[in-house]
Simulated scan of single mutants.
Amino acid sequence: MLRIGLFLLTNLAVLVVAGIVLSLLGVGSYRSAGGLDLQNLLVFCAVFGFVGSFISLFISKWMAKKTMGVQLIDQPRNADEQWLVNTVVELSQKAGIKTPEIGVFPAQESNAFATGWNRNAALVAVSLGLLQRFERDEVRAVLAHEIGHVANGDMITLSLIQGVVNTFVMFFARIIGDLVDRVLLKNEDGRGFGFMIATFVAEIVLGILASMIVAAFSRYREFRADHAGATLADRGAMIRALQRLQAESGAAESAMPSSMRAFGISGGMRSLFASHPPLEARIQALRDAA
């Protein structure tokens, strides 16, 4: 229920902010009796495409804390938490970034994630299951992997890519909808149900194709973050951490939103839509780089 409420709240924020931006830009309707106003249409799609992507980015830390039940470590309460804080501080200094907020979330799956709107205002969190089952050098490698995501600016880059694909999906879907309504259905006004239905179908098809682009970058950033884990921590420990994940791959998949699965496995998917490369490919890439 909480996630549904947050989803609706986020979409309401997108509508409000996008409406304000369009008003400030003086963008009117992109449809007229003469057809589509492509300039207004492109601005309209860009505003909605990027506003949605960036609102999600700006509230990502807050969303993670709410939906994942992340407990921040403000003052370490025991030796394990002190080690965790010291390790993140050390790795952040090596990576040249400000120390992220550090947290633990109550999941038995071995997982971790990094999120935040910029490299100096991030959150790094690990699951209780990972802390309980991984050796400390492996946990350190996992943390280095997450610090690598932050240092590489992966969150902001992914948001930019998502904004671009959102823009063009909306743009071309509406052009397709207009063509179907005018050419196939002979609706000269271009405002019939054909436009709405064709646009809806086109958005689904183009959205599926666009998701392949986003997934491809997501897989690429995992290889880069693995390299960061090997560089900031230890290559052998990074490989062992991935091998341990591989051994646990038969366990239940984490309930973490896919956008936050920065280290975990993605349900065994090995397709163009997978957000993570196969673990064996990541392990081999680390070995080859050595």
Rank of each mutant, 00 (worst) to 15 (best):
I4E: 09
F7P: 00
L8Q: 05
L9A: 15
A13V: 12
L15Y: 10
V16D: 07
V17R: 09
A18N: 01
G19R: 12
L25H: 14
V27W: 09
R31I: 07
A33G: 15
G35A: 05
G35T: 04
L36V: 15
D37F: 11
V43I: 15
A46N: 10
F48A: 03
F48C: 00
G49D: 07
G52M: 02
S56L: 03
S60R: 09
K61Y: 03
W62T: 10
M68K: 06
G69N: 10
V70Q: 01
I73M: 12
D74T: 08
Q75S: 06
N78C: 05
N78R: 04
D80Q: 15
D80Y: 10
Q82G: 12
Q82P: 08
V85K: 12
N86G: 07
T87R: 13
V88C: 04
V89R: 10
V89T: 11
K94C: 08
K94V: 05
A95W: 12
G96I: 07
I97Y: 09
T99V: 15
G103K: 05
F105L: 04
F113P: 11
T115A: 04
G116N: 09
R119G: 09
L123F: 11
A125C: 02
L130F: 04
Q132R: 12
E135G: 15
E135F: 07
D137A: 00
A141W: 01
A141P: 05
A141F: 02
A144R: 13
V150F: 04
D154Y: 03
M155N: 09
M155A: 14
I156D: 03
I156C: 10
T157K: 15
L158C: 06
L160N: 06
V164M: 12
V165P: 10
N166Y: 09
F168C: 09
A173N: 03
R174P: 05
I175E: 05
G177I: 05
G177P: 09
D178A: 10
N187T: 11
R191E: 07
R191Y: 03
R191D: 13
I197T: 11
A202V: 01
I204G: 11
L206T: 04
L206P: 03
L209K: 05
S218P: 13
R219F: 02
Y220T: 06
Y220C: 00
A225S: 15
A225M: 10
D226G: 14
H227N: 11
H227K: 08
H227W: 02
A230C: 08
A230S: 13
A230Y: 07
T231Y: 06
A233D: 01
R235L: 11
A237W: 11
M238R: 02
M238Q: 10
M238N: 05
R240Y: 07
A241K: 10
Q243M: 14
Q246I: 01
A247N: 14
A251R: 11
M256F: 04
S259P: 00
S259V: 02
M260F: 14
M260G: 01
G264I: 00
G268I: 00
M269G: 01
M269T: 00
M269C: 00
R270C: 00
S271V: 01
L272A: 11
F273V: 01
A274G: 09
P278C: 03
A285T: 04
